[in-house]
Write a protein that binds this DNA or RNA. Structure first.
Lengths: 374, 374
DNA sequence: GGCTTCCTTGGTAGCGCTACCATCCGCTAT
DNA sequence: ATAGCGGATGGTAGCGCTACCAAGGAAGCC
């Protein structure tokens, strides 16, 4: 257990120890004069300790650890042995300070609990787990201001790469990203004007595809139900609108949205609102799957037949959608893959071979299921 | 956009600039002799720049930023002005190196996508967003070995505090945590032997309460359905077992588990297995809400009446449970609050007033709903 | 008035590491 | 042989910041 007193008093408890150690050193006629155990460090072994034990220069230890190929095998082995014996672990802070580059990926997402971003983040973590890179995750809460603040904080660490969700950065955020001096990947969406690199798909096309599917299935009074209405939701709505207008079915009263964060219960409420507004509603394209599930449950509760009376389409295709009864049609998106690809592109850029394809569109897939099988 | 060539060649592009700047400085008879623009730093303003501009010593700037109370208001204002004019942001790496303490909270969770941990993490982030602390989030994938590895990595950064999920650390992990030299909070569960501090609740009691509720509602052949079966699931199962044995209803064939990660579709499959094994099954206590939702959908599909034929209880009480049709009884847990409380305790310990209550049990609540209203 | 005490401010010396350059060695080309 | 070259190794000098100590002055005390 960590010594409570140490933390309580805000003290580091090494002063005595180290005076002590220094005394021992000098009484042994050791090299304590040239390197008295510092009063400040936690007493953990440093690269100099390893170097001394291995009988080499500190810089050679540094090289053996970072670029093993540039050190002869003999020394490498000796150094490795010394590292293990001492339990040496490099100090990332010192490393970052000396090299002016931290082995850190900065990741900015608007939400931690939204399954969609959680999947992207998981892809990022999985891709980086065997690398020396750490991850600095920031939650912007869908706020441009918060994004700017976090970018400032992250930038001060000189990260190796930055991954940010979305393409609608504020001018300030954009400038911060442009001047970050490291690869930048915008994820979740594709767009015309990347800061550096992009991985995602077109939410507009997704919304359009979902809506066209409902139209083709014979639904006519198709509502759009959306919560949160972040830029990606807006583009799905734009896709919905485009499809509806093209079919001559558009009616603004069919749209029900709220800035409130999305949830299953909200889906249920919004659907009731929508039905109250347009009793002839015969289909809904839901902003996301949580909303769609809420709609489905409300249909059950109100004994509305799905897909006969109402057709339902979701967005993202969570695992739940294929299990639901009836199973729910949704737009399958590749969140995990987006995370993986973003890391792969960033790593390539760091390694020097920047991918020539700066914008990667991973697409989506319409999963037709029972909820629209009329 | 970051200069692609810079990253491509692995070069930093400041060499020319800085020779340049140095030349300008000296031609202006500036202080370039005492501080020629370094070749290495990114050319960003340092504390020395601020100090010079404000006409004070560097250490005073440092103090003004960290302990404003110890600097006169006059100087504080001057320094603040200089900071803003230069756009100075302290380098956290240099700070950590010099103070042997990084302003970082290390957080270890077994999963990033499991809503339960996502909520805890959200609580942690929200509690820390106005503090100077950054968060280092690690995903252990429910692996003790991975936890040890991450603890090693995190420890090398000298974090200000560590928050870890669960109480079943390996001996190595436990030793690493004990020697971390910072406050440690174990979250999600409570147990008898904290490493330092704990915030959570009793999963055993939760499992028992859920099961007792089913028994009281008149169900007899009550199954346990669980996926993943991490230590917390095991304890819920133990609670189930205790309740069933006490009522003389226990039968090992009623238990259906799998080490596979939990999901809604898995819930459906496990329920089918359970029913095939025990056709007289009349209730299920589900390891978590995803499983419960899967069970509910399968009941719909198979036209099994809930709650008449089968009673369902979930665990965690996601928002969805109250919206489902029928709404699903569940054990409400306070994940977000666990995250907040863990941070509050860690911050208190850092500040010096360690909470005298080292183990905080936030409890749970049985939410009775339609799925068990027989 | 002289002394202690506290408060404010600054100088110095690192924190642990790596960039940069120098050195040394063994080898090849002439 | 000897200059030239590339690879291996090491020394030096920081990276930007803060712990530690010292100094100076104001305020309080006898």
């Amino acid at each position: 257990m960590p010594d409570p007193r140490r933390a309580e008093l805000g003290l580091r408890d090494d002063t005595d120890d180290d005076l002590h150690s220094a005394a021992i050193y000098s009484s042994l006629g050791d090299t304590s004069v040239t390197r008295p155990r510092s009063r400040r460090g936690g007493g953990r072994p440093t690269i100099a300790d390893v170097a001394r034990k291995a009988g080499v220069g500190a810089i050679t230890v540094s090289r053996a650890l970072r670029e093993p190929g540039r050190v002869s095998e003999d020394l490498r082995r000796q150094i490795q042995a010394a590292v293990e014996e001492l339990g040496y672990v490099p100090d990332p802070n010192a490393r970052a300070l000396a090299s002016a580059r931290a082995e850190v990926f900065g990741v900015l997402v608007p939400s931690l609990t939204n399954n969609v971003f959680a999947e992207v983040v998981r892809g990022i973590y999985d891709s980086l787990s065997d690398s020396p890179f750490r991850i600095q995750l920031g939650n912007t809460h869908y706020s441009g201001l918060e994004e700017e603040r976090l970018l400032q904080v992250f930038g001060s660490q000189r990260p190796a790469a930055l991954i940010v969700a979305g393409i609608d950065q504020t001018p300030t955020s954009r400038r911060l990203l442009e001047n970050a001096g490291c690869p930048v990947v915008q994820v979740m969406e594709t767009g015309p004007d990347p800061i550096d690199m992009m991985v995602g798909f077109s939410h507009l096309d997704g919304g359009r595809t979902a809506t066209e599917h409902l139209i083709e299935a014979g639904y006519r009074r198709i509502g759009f139900i959306g919560a949160r209405m972040d830029p990606r939701s807006q583009r799905r709505l734009a896709g919905y609108r485009a499809a509806m207008e093209k079919a001559g079915l558009f009616d603004p009263r069919l749209i029900t949205t709220t800035p409130v964060p999305s949830s299953v219960s909200l889906g249920r409420e919004l659907f009731r609102d929508a039905l109250a507004k347009v009793p002839t509603l015969d289909g809904v394209f839901c902003n996301n799957d949580d909303i769609a599930i809420g709609v489905l449950f409300e249909c059950h509760r109100a004994a509305i037949d799905v897909p006969k009376t109402i057709g339902i389409v979701g967005f993202n295709d969570l695992d739940m959608m294929q299990v639901a009864f009836p199973s729910i049609t949704s737009i399958r998106t590749y969140r995990y893959e987006i995370g993986r690809r973003a890391v792969a592109m960033a790593l390539a850029a760091i390694a020097g071979d920047r991918p020539e394809q700066r914008i990667v569109d991973l697409g989506f897939e319409l999963k037709r299921r029972e909820s629209t099988a009329r």
